[in-house]
Design a protein around this nucleic acid. Structure first.
Length: 815
RNA sequence: GCCGGGGUGGCGGAACUGGUCAGACGCGCUUGACUUAAAAUCAAGUGUCCCCUAGCGGGGCGUGCGGGUUCGACUCCCGCCCCCGGCACCA
């Protein structure tokens, strides 16, 4: 018997698969392929910002198991790969390593591709795409233009989050606790012209169309719901009589309208200037606004005491004409709701805190039914269910809180002073970046015509080669003077190109469509092909993209559907969110320097052992700790499999009748593995099941069913360890396991003639008796009561009840 | 605070719709075989406490805590505690 030599057999089989183009998947021809049999198995494409790490190994091995399983199940499986090669991750890698982003990126892609091939993943490499290739970003630009034409891409001056370290604008989702999510620098506020996608137009659809999804983890859906933050409430218009101004507010508690005792506007509110001019407090107001603007988001959050300044003006409450003092305070956010609030200190904790600090009146108008007429105790009383009623609220007094909400809004609406409305936390997606390494935005600025899109025929607008691409506070492309100067497509006059580039998340919002038709030179994709393959049946990737990529991609697909470019509303029907692979207790990452790459592990143990290990370590949706011991354990298993199968190949009977316990075990294993992968989406228990089968087989290599058991084990482990499985399959006298239909459990073999009847006394198992499968209830009871061990527990007691579960157990209740 | 997920041996975890003595499978550990020795490999053991006529013996207790439903609960219900994640001066 020769030794198990993973390096040799893995290289050999990888060569065979490459020669045979074993994993290339043709598109359906015009006639089409049975759409029922298609399966699109997609994993998030990697940033080529370094080399492959164990997190990638988990994601792509998971996808690989699924791909093999589906292929062998007879489905037509699309399993592509590409690289998210534009954007900050790649550019920062280039800066770190001191080279041109293109060179560094392409070098990284080459290395990652080689590692991926060495892992033996069944990828259709003929569909590979990379975001930075002109053949790809030409169509990113084309799609941008469609959104621009539809009014969904626009420019506006907006306060932006600015990272002083990366020298660029950050999207909301790239800011964490007031700091840059990438480098940790404190974020500053700036007012800049920016490009935005009107994703807020799709807020409701992003929420409501979650219904179209087949299976997404609840926590990802919850994160998206939180992120979008839809809240139902009312818009109520207050008036500043002396200035002739209207100041609308958004509130979720219109029932507390009569309890409003003051009014607050955000320091950045556009009407602050009007309120300041001529106010006795003018100087104080200006100081406050300036001081607030200078504060970072972190500082604003960290102040524990509320601050503010009185404007000297009053807002009139439309309900009771009460005149409420208008304050300016930074606890009110300019970019949520209307940037102004009616303050109800009795029923809102923040307003209460502010009222205490500045000694403003507190007027309770909602009380628990039980304490009707009583005023609430300390702090704000925030209850607003059916058990709370209104007091001191004019004609609405006595109504329950929910009733009053409706009634007050209706009453305001009749008078044109308010309406029911919905607010979102979600903001439009700012997608322009003052960075070099990204997709150029195909727009030119003409003095005469303004903002003009580059005609489709002139795409791609190529990213120019420049020497100094480092971010220095302005877009690096601005220094490419010759490139910037251009003619206006409309009037032919002098014009300048847009020098900002697109956020990398634009590239990744449609790559899964390009995979369907990667070489198309006429269009980003043929609608027939994307409609065939999509929505993707399964998407696999990390939680870190829950509120970013996964929302953007859903948004893009909805837009493309509305524009008639695709025939579906959601890109990914099922989502699997994998856990982190940790080393020494924290997530592996380059910045922490605790990366273990698969290359060294594969060199030491072989790809099959590494693949098995990463999936056996823990359930794939949980975080897991990588340890060297775990690979060694898996190598032991592969060697045992090797030895046992080799023994079977040499000496097991060829004409053995496949029956008996070993044959049954083989078929039970088929049923278990098939169900786990196919239905339960659980990937570690199938390995255990095959181990059990191999353990049983190892003591019975001359059993008449030994060949069946060995073939079954090899066949079932193939999606996990395709190389050693293929090698052993050929040693068992067969070929092309990767095309072998997935085994089916034989019902006849699974059926047992007898079964172990569990006999319980008072719910405790006291014996197990082998009985015929078709025994009647009476026979089961007789067997149960006949057991000597059961008799012991029955002695002297009376049987009060007999519970019989057919084919399972008998429970005798005594007392 | 609101929302979501989760608590099972020394460790990772299994037990799928309440029903086969909870703890499969693996890691680790212990003992033994092989070896001059070690590694590797193989074999046996491994929740916990107790009893005895010491056996291929018997019993109690055990799935975060406290209750409940049920013939029967890791699984269902109620109330707590703890851990992880998301959102958060969002009105």
């Amino acid at each position: 018997m020769d030794r198990y030599d993973p390096q040799r057999i893995e290289r050999a089989w990888q060569a065979v698969w490459a020669d045979e183009r074993a994993f290339s998947v043709p598109n359906p021809d015009e006639a089409g392929v049975d759409a029922q049999a298609k399966h699109y198995s997609l994993e998030m494409w990697p940033y080529p910002s370094g080399t492959l790490h164990m997190g990638h190994v988990l994601v792509y091995t998971l996808g690989d198991v699924l791909t093999h399983f589906r292929r062998r199940g007879g489905e037509h499986v699309l399993r592509p790969m590409g690289f998210d090669s534009f954007g900050l991750p790649a550019e920062n890698a280039a800066i770190r390593e001191g080279g041109h982003p293109r060179e560094i990126t392409e070098r990284n892609i080459k290395a990652i591709r080689a590692s991926m091939r060495r892992m033996g993943w069944a990828i259709d490499w003929e569909r590979e795409v990379s975001a930075h290739q002109p053949e790809y970003y030409r169509w990113t630009q084309w799609l941008f233009l469609r959104l621009f034409e539809a009014g969904l891409a626009y420019r506006k001056a907006a306060p932006v989050k600015w990272c002083p370290n990366d020298q660029t604008v950050l999207a909301n989702e790239q800011v964490k606790d007031g700091r840059c999510a990438r480098c940790g620098a404190e974020v500053e506020a700036k007012n800049l012209e920016q490009w935005f996608f009107r994703i807020t137009d799709y807020a409701d659809q992003l929420l409501d169309e979650m219904e179209l999804l087949e299976s997404w983890p609840e926590r990802i859906l919850a994160m998206q719901r939180n992120w979008i933050g839809r809240s139902h409430g009312a818009r109520i218009v207050f008036r500043v009589e002396e200035l002739g101004l209207e100041l609308p507010v958004f509130t979720t508690r219109p029932d507390t309208l009569f309890g409003s005792t003051f009014f607050v506007v955000a320091p950045e509110h556009p009407l602050v200037e009007r309120l300041a001019v001529g106010s006795p407090n003018e100087a104080a107001i200006r100081d406050y606004v300036r001081a607030t603007a200078a504060k970072t988001a972190v500082e604003r959050l960290e102040t524990d005491e509320k601050t503010g300044v009185f404007t000297g003006h009053f807002a009139t409450n439309p309900a009771d004409e009460a005149r409420l003092p208008i304050w300016i305070a930074d606890y009110v956010l300019a970019d949520y709701g209307t940037g102004a609030i009616m303050a109800v200190p009795a029923h809102d904790e923040r307003d209460f805190e502010f009222a205490e600090r500045f000694e403003l009146p507190v007027q309770a108008v909602v009380v628990p039914k039980a304490e009707r007429g009583e005023s609430a105790g300390e702090g704000a009383f925030v209850g607003h269910s059916d058990d709370e009623v209104l007091v001191d609220s004019g004609r609405f007094s006595g109504m329950s809180s929910p009733e009053a909400k409706e009634a007050i809004v209706a009453w305001l609406a009749e008078r044109g002073r308010g309406s029911a409305t919905v607010n979102y936390r979600l903001r439009d997606w700012g997608f322009s970046r003052q960075r070099y390494w990204g997709c150029p935005i195909p727009i030119v600025y003409c003095d005469r015509c303004g903002l003009v899109p580059v005609p489709d025929a002139e795409l791609p607008v190529r990213l120019p080669e420049i020497e100094d691409y480092l971010p220095r506070g302005k877009a690096p492309l601005a220094s490419a003077e010759e490139w910037v100067r251009t003619g206006c497509p409309r009037c032919g006059g002098d014009a300048r190109r847009e020098v900002e580039t697109m956020d990398t998340f634009v590239d990744s919002s449609w790559y899964f469509l390009r995979y369907c038709d990667p070489q198309n030179e006429e269009a980003p994709f043929d609608r027939r092909l994307v409609d065939y393959w999509l929505p993707a049946n399964q998407y696999i990737g990390g939680v870190d993209h829950a509120t970013v990529h996964l929302i953007y991609a859903r948004f893009f697909v909805k837009v493309l559907n509305d524009l008639g470019l695709v025939g579906f509303r959601e890109p990914f029907l099922r989502l699997f969110s994998n856990g982190w692979v940790q080393l020494g207790g924290s997530k592996m990452s380059k910045s922490k320097g605790n990366v273990t790459g698969p290359d060294e592990l594969v060199a030491a143990y072989g790809a099959d052992a590494v693949r098995l290990t990463i999936l056996f370590l823990a359930p794939a949706d949980q975080d897991m700790e990588w340890t060297e011991e775990s690979v060694q354990g898996m190598v032991r298993f592969v060697r045992r499999l090797w030895r046992v199968v080799d023994e079977v190949a040499e000496r097991a009977p060829r004409d053995g009748a496949p029956q008996g316990p070993l044959a049954r075990k083989a078929h039970e294993t088929i049923a278990k593995v098939t169900d786990d992968i196919g239905r339960r989406f659980q990937f570690h228990t199938p390995i255990s099941a095959v181990m059990e089968l191999v353990n049983m087989l190892s003591g019975a290599t001359s059993d008449p069913a030994a060949r069946l058991a060995a073939e079954t084990a090899v066949s079932l482990i193939q999606p996990y360890a395709p190389h050693v499985a293929e090698e052993l399959w050929s040693r068992l006298g067969h070929e092309r396991l990767w095309e072998e239909p997935w085994p089916r459990a034989d019902e006849a073999l699974l059926r047992r003639e007898t079964f172990q009847l569990v006999v319980q006394v008072n719910g405790k198992v006291r014996d197990r008796v082998e009985v015929a499968a078709d025994a009647s209830e009476e026979e089961l009871v007789a067997c149960a009561e006949g057991s000597p061990r059961v008799q012991q527990h029955l002695s002297g007691k009376r049987i009060r009840q007999r519970v019989v579960v057919p084919r399972k157990l008998v429970n005798l209740v005594v007392g």
